[in-house]
Computed example of a mutant assay.
Amino acid sequence: MSGEVAQLKHEGSQLQVVAAGAIAGLVSRFVIAPLDVIKIRLQLQVHSLSDPLSTRGVQGPTYKGTLGTLKYILREEGLTGLWKGNVPAELMYLCYGGIQFSAYKYSSTLLESIPAPYELHGSAVSFISGATAGACATTATYPLDLLRTRFAAQGTERVYTSLAASIRHIAQHEGPKGFFRGLGAGVSQIVPYMGLFFASYEGLKPVMANSPLALPFGGSDGLSGIIASVFAKTAVYPLDTTRKRLQVQGPMRSKFVHRNIPMYSGVISTLVTISKREGMRGLYRGLTVSLLKAAPAASVTMWTYERAIAGMLMLEDGRRAE
């Protein structure tokens, strides 16, 4: 295989794309797990400067900033507290990566086969393919995402004793729909996010590859992934906060680390309630750590994906040459 990396949607067979996507998701999740827990804790924290709410007897916010949240979790819950929800999250990222890249490859190939004069080109193909891939992967792995959030929302008091126990409890007390609380916000978020991400990534990648300067974060692949991810995540972040608030609704809502999470129902009403009660700051709470998370996550994901594909193709070429 030459030193030039082919465009993402043209690399490897369907099976190789699935395998590389799964590997990329798994590695990425392990690296950013602590930042993910911090982000979720901040997003679930209900606090208004004009009307401070008491959480566990503390007037005002329990967590104050990224470093403050990190120190608090380490002090109260130990190092393992930063990896709460990691088992369902690893399963989610493993499945999500494979489904996402597979759906992206399939969608882009299908769109490029549209005959004239209806054919699509460039960014349009990347945007639609990315949005489709994100929606498919989000829906398929959503129950694991919900479980990840609920475990990350547990403080020193264990709400669920195990992954199996959480599944049984939700199925018994909330029914099948309990596993999909906030799915509307998830799909509403991921469609523009993945569309913007892949369109930006594939637009930036050739530009970065021709840069005369040495690039950090794994070169053109990693840096392009970081810039694309930061841009897309900032644009849709309020929907991410909405999704997290909806995911912890249900009979166990008052038992999570934040005891004062209000009752929400529906994406629009949740957005309106948060903005009215907490202001725009409430919708963007945890954005800083989310962007800090986005950079290594995107860089590791895309860098690992590209190398995994390259390795598989190299092995395949070696077998053919024998």
Rank of each mutant, 00 (worst) to 15 (best):
residue 264 Y to F: 15
residue 267 V to S: 10
residue 251 P to W: 09
residue 46 V to R: 14
residue 295 A to N: 10
residue 33 A to Q: 15
residue 94 L to Y: 11
residue 18 V to R: 08
residue 102 S to C: 11
residue 156 T to H: 14
residue 88 P to M: 00
residue 288 T to H: 12
residue 45 Q to R: 02
residue 61 P to F: 02
residue 99 I to H: 00
residue 40 I to Y: 14
residue 221 D to C: 08
residue 249 Q to W: 00
residue 16 Q to K: 11
residue 263 M to N: 13
residue 180 F to Q: 04
residue 183 L to H: 01
residue 217 F to D: 04
residue 16 Q to S: 11
residue 195 G to L: 09
residue 159 V to S: 05
residue 141 T to Y: 01
residue 299 S to R: 02
residue 312 M to R: 05
residue 50 S to I: 01
residue 30 F to V: 12
residue 127 F to C: 06
residue 291 L to Y: 09
residue 211 S to R: 03
residue 59 Q to F: 06
residue 10 H to P: 05
residue 194 M to T: 05
residue 109 T to P: 00
residue 65 G to Y: 05
residue 289 V to N: 12
residue 291 L to A: 08
residue 136 C to L: 14
residue 154 Q to E: 15
residue 15 L to M: 10
residue 291 L to S: 09
residue 115 P to W: 03
residue 217 F to S: 10
residue 231 F to M: 15
residue 315 L to D: 11
residue 73 I to R: 00
residue 179 F to T: 01
residue 232 A to F: 09
residue 154 Q to I: 00
residue 249 Q to Y: 02
residue 231 F to C: 13
residue 100 Q to I: 01
residue 94 L to P: 01
residue 300 V to E: 06
residue 83 W to P: 03
residue 248 V to L: 03
residue 211 S to W: 01
residue 313 L to V: 08
residue 49 L to N: 10
residue 115 P to C: 04
residue 77 E to G: 05
residue 306 E to F: 12
residue 14 Q to V: 11
residue 212 P to K: 03
residue 72 Y to N: 12
residue 43 Q to C: 12
residue 264 Y to I: 01
residue 107 S to Y: 03
residue 157 E to M: 10
residue 268 I to D: 11
residue 316 E to Y: 11
residue 148 R to K: 13
residue 122 G to R: 06
residue 304 T to C: 14
residue 141 T to D: 02
residue 204 L to Q: 02
residue 176 P to W: 06
residue 230 V to A: 15
residue 299 S to N: 06
residue 245 R to T: 09
residue 93 Y to E: 01
residue 239 L to Y: 03
residue 261 I to H: 10
residue 76 E to K: 14
residue 90 E to L: 13
residue 124 A to C: 07
residue 286 G to R: 07
residue 284 Y to R: 03
residue 25 G to Q: 05
residue 286 G to T: 07
residue 214 A to C: 04
residue 140 A to I: 08
residue 184 G to I: 09
residue 92 M to A: 13
residue 42 L to W: 04
residue 146 L to G: 03
residue 15 L to F: 12
residue 305 Y to G: 06
residue 134 G to Q: 04
residue 26 L to F: 15
residue 322 E to C: 09
residue 179 F to G: 01
residue 43 Q to F: 03
residue 308 A to L: 08
residue 16 Q to R: 11
residue 139 T to K: 00
residue 108 S to L: 00
residue 280 M to I: 15
residue 261 I to R: 11
residue 44 L to K: 02
residue 19 A to V: 13
residue 122 G to N: 10
